[in-house]
């Protein structure tokens, strides 16, 4: 993985997290970041197919991370 890949994965995780929030603006931002991370990944990669498979698999872990963040927030409250 290059540093760009880490950046796109971080972007993807941010996108999923914003999508999970209740404010409409945040959701729109998340909705924008998610496809943006995919587009950037596809544009910068040498192999589009590999990038898409990686993005789909990484999405699951972005969702799990987000759920864990929400769980931690609920505990802290």
């Amino acid at each position: 993985m290059t540093e760009y890949d880490y950046f796109y994965t971080a972007l993807q995780t941010c996108g999923v997290f914003l999508l999970s929030l209740s404010q409409a603006g945040m959701r729109w931002a998340g909705g924008f970041l998610l496809p943006a991370s995919l587009c950037l990944d596809v544009i910068s990669t040498e192999n589009t197919a590999f990038a898409i498979v990686f993005w789909v698999c990484a999405l699951a872990f972005a969702v799990i991370t987000t759920a864990l963040v929400h769980t931690a927030r609920r505990w802290l409250r």
Binding site: V53, C57, A58
Partner: peptide, 17 residues
């Protein structure tokens, strides 16, 4: 077979899920 190391870990993690 195509998967580089990071993708293989994601496959492994998705299998665990």
């Amino acid at each position: 077979h195509f998967a580089p190391l990071a993708t293989r870990w994601l496959y492994f993690g998705s299998g665990v899920l």
